[in-house]
Structure formats: structure tokens, C-alpha cells
Write a protein that binds this DNA or RNA. Structure first.
Lengths: 240, 240
DNA sequence: GTCTATAACTGGATAGAC
DNA sequence: GTCTATCCAGTTATAGAC
């Protein structure tokens, strides 16, 4: 960790990684600090929600001053949106690509489980190998998803296209399925998926340590099988 | 609505139902106001979360002064706990009784769907016929459930016994099922169930009006079938 | 039991120095 | 680009009148 050789400050330590000397100082440092602000905001919002976090806390954890947050992002709510947007674009592209690839490689022979795995697996992969930032982001999205005041609007803005693609692809994997059945089952799926990637730790306590929320490898296959079994049971019942 | 014949006040209108004249004034009015405070706190916390609500808002909506909230409940966090507790005891008893009754009436012939229906149906019934208060309470619990900071601890405090009973009863309905499978599948179930009773309105927007979050009668049978199909698929795969 | 008044503090946001 | 200093609206909570 580089430390700037400034006069002693008695305020809280400010660990801050500057873009090591080389390069335009006007840009390099700025990008780093902007990311640092987003990182700390992401973690704090994930743990305590929008109103449970102060811009002072975000600034302190990022090692910057509150004024810098307003300089880069404007109001607190705009910072929040920036946190959401940063990873939404990445993950949505990955999910869309995975579903398209699955359909292309299984012409006329798609299973519900295959489609569902393509839809969810990018999240599990990022949660397993993307570092704490991705984990925080998933926990945050999970909370927004279930908040009446924001769940409808925010989810709509960031996730509608990829969800529509899932429903349509599932419709081709489950021919004859009624649309209301698909929408309801998608809602059930999203509830399970979000609670799983949120890693709340509830399952650790409930199972007396037999299961661990962080063990997404254990959750993964069960989740795909569970959701596919659910879709098929509902579609079967509706048809029969 | 009874209106107290007090001198004109220029402050915001305070519609308040007093316990109509008869009875000890020292108790009657107090109970009413206490419930009014809990009602407005419940609705506001459900929409905006703990930190998104001020005691002033709660007091204003209940038609009382903030000081009265502290007189009855103490700190803001204690008010929050009181909101949770009020309905938790009721619903937990109903769910425990429903599962016990189902098992008693189906000796040696329980289905996963039957057990799950007994576990969830009391929620659906209260959400459909219990008024806005119950709807608010479910939305609030759904949010807490998925909040890392509180989800583990609060859910544990209020819901562990009834969930343990579900898992044990399901174990008897699905003989040979491994415990980790049951715990993981319970987590998937709870995610779907909570998102459904939270009624966020997301499904309305996603389905372009073909489905309505408030149509719990449409959700109910699909949810039971979906969850049972999921449990059975996971258990089957694990055994095979 | 209920309200008025206010203490003591924290919040988001900005102007302006560097 | 970044920080210091500060404004002031809004927050929880309480003391004490009625």
C-alpha cells in the first residue's frame, strides 16, 4: 500500500492506492478513487440498505472525503444507481450469451434444467470467483428485488430484457406451457436464486452447521434441479 | 370514525379512534393508540425499511406525538421488534397446527405437496383475508429475511421452531431424503414464498399485465406444486 | 396518558481554498 | 481533482407541563 508523504494527520487512517506516479495525474488517480468509492458504497449498501448508510461512512471506508462523492456522482441516490449499473451490464451480457449458446448447441433438444442453468450459472461463477465486490452486489440486488418501493421499478430498468429472454427460451424448452405459468414460475425461481446468492447465513444457523450459505457449489446443482422440477410439475399439472 | 370534541387545533388533522367513551379511560384509549402506532409503523417499515422511516412519520400517520411512541415502546428498534412480534406468534401457531393436523389426517400417506401447503397456506389466507396489516407484515418479513445484517438473527429468533417442524415433517413425507437436501430445498422454498407474499408488483410489469402480484389465489396452487416438484426432483436425483 | 418544547446530535450537500 | 470548513434541515430522545 503506497502512503502519500504528507504531514501527519490525526484523522482516521486513509489507505488509498494511487495510480503509481506515472501517467496523467488528472485521470489516473481519479479512476482509482471513483472505483474505491463504488466498492465501499457497494459493500455498505448491501449490508444496511440505502437509508442505513451515510455518505460519510462511504467516504471514510473509501479513504476520501464526502465532497469527492458528490463531485463524482452527485446526490446519494445517483451513487446508488452507479453501484447498480456497474455490474448489471456485465452480468446481463454473460447471461444472455450463455442462454443463446445453450440454445444453439441443443437444437430441438433443450431441457428446462439446461436453460435455467445457463440463466443462473453466470451469477454463481461470479459469486464464487469474482471477489467480495460481486458478492456484495448480489446481496444488494437481492434486497432491492424484494423491496416494494423499488423492486418493481429498478428490476424493470436493469433486468427486463434478460428475463424476457429466459421466459421465451423456456417456452421453447417446454412446448405448450401457458404464459402465466411461466411468469409465476419465474417469480418462484428468482426468489430462490436471489436468496441463495445473497448468502445471508440463515441456512448455517438453521441446519446447525450442516450447510453453509457460502458453499455455492453445494447450492448450485440442487438449485437447477429444484427449479426445473418445479417448472415441469406446474406445466404438467396445467396441461393434464 | 368518532371524533373527539376538543378545541380546534391548527396542526395536521389527527383522525384517531378512541375507545368510545365507555370503560376505564386509563386503559381503553391507550390500547387503541398503541395499536395505531404499530399499524402505521408496520406499513412504513414494510415500504421503506428500518432506516428509511422516522419516528416522526410513524407518529404523524398514527395521529399521535413522537413522545408517545417512546412512552409505549422505548427506542425505535424496540418499536420495530414489537411490530414483528405482534403477528409472528399468531401465524406460527397457525402453521404449526396446520402441519400437525395434516400429518394426523394422513397417517403414512403424506405427500410433499400436502406438507408444503399446510406450511404456506396460513400465510396466503392471512394475506388474502387479514387486511392490509397482514400484507404489510409479510412484506416486512420478506425484506428482513434477505438482509444480511438481520436475516440470520431475526429469522432465527422468530421462526426457527416452525421451520424445524416443516423440515422434520417433510423428512417423513420423503423417506430417505438427505438432510442437506432438505435444508437447501427449504431455502429455495422460502425465497419463493417470501417474494410471493411480499407482492412487489414486479410480475405485473414483467408479464405486461397478464399476471398480478395481488392475485394470490393464482399464485397459491402453482407455488405448492412448484415447490413439491422441486423437492421431489432433488431427492430423486440424490438417491438415484 | 398525552402533548409541548427543546436538547443534543447526525444527515446530505456545497462554497471555496489548495 | 481533492480536501477543509460549514450550513442547516432533520433525527432520536427526553424533561416536564397538563
Amino acid at each position: 500500500m503506497a502512503r502519500s508523504g504528507e504531514p501527519v494527520k490525526t484523522t482516521t487512517a486513509k489507505p488509498r492506492t494511487r495510480s503509481a506516479g506515472r501517467g496523467r495525474p488528472t485521470k489516473g488517480a481519479g479512476v482509482d478513487l471513483k472505483e474505491a468509492i463504488l466498492d465501499s458504497a457497494e459493500g455498505l449498501f448491501a449490508r444496511h440498505g440505502f437509508y442505513g448508510v451515510t455518505t460519510r461512512q462511504v467516504a471514510s471506508e473509501a479513504g476520501v472525503d464526502t465532497a469527492l462523492i458528490h463531485y463524482y456522482f452527485g446526490a446519494k441516490r445517483e451513487l446508488f444507481d452507479a453501484v447498480l449499473l456497474r455490474r448489471a451490464e456485465i452480468i446481463n451480457r454473460e447471461r444472455a450469451d450463455a442462454m443463446t449458446a445453450y440454445e444453439a448447441s441443443h437444437p430441438g433438444a433443450m431441457t428446462a434444467e439446461g436453460v435455467i442453468a445457463a440463466f443462473i450459472d453466470p451469477l454463481i461463477e461470479r459469486a464464487l470467483g469474482g471477489g467480495q465486490g460481486w458478492k456484495n452486489w448480489f446481496a444488494l440486488v437481492a434486497q432491492i428485488n424484494i423491496t416494494p418501493a423499488w423492486g418493481g421499478e429498478v428490476m424493470h430498468r436493469f433486468f427486463d430484457p434478460v428475463v424476457r429472454q429466459l421466459v421465451e427460451t423456456l417456452g421453447r424448452a417446454l412446448p405448450g406451457a401457458a404464459m402465466p405459468d411461466l411468469y409465476w414460475c419465474y417469480q418462484f425461481l428468482t426468489g430462490s436464486m436471489m436468496l441463495t446468492v445473497a448468502e445471508t447465513g440463515r441456512i448455517d444457523q438453521l441446519s446447525d452447521g450442516q450447510c453453509h450459505a457460502s458453499d455455492l457449489d453445494a447450492a448450485r446443482q440442487r438449485l437447477y434441479t429444484y427449479c426445473a422440477g418445479g417448472f415441469e410439475a406446474v406445466v404438467r399439472k396445467s396441461a393434464g
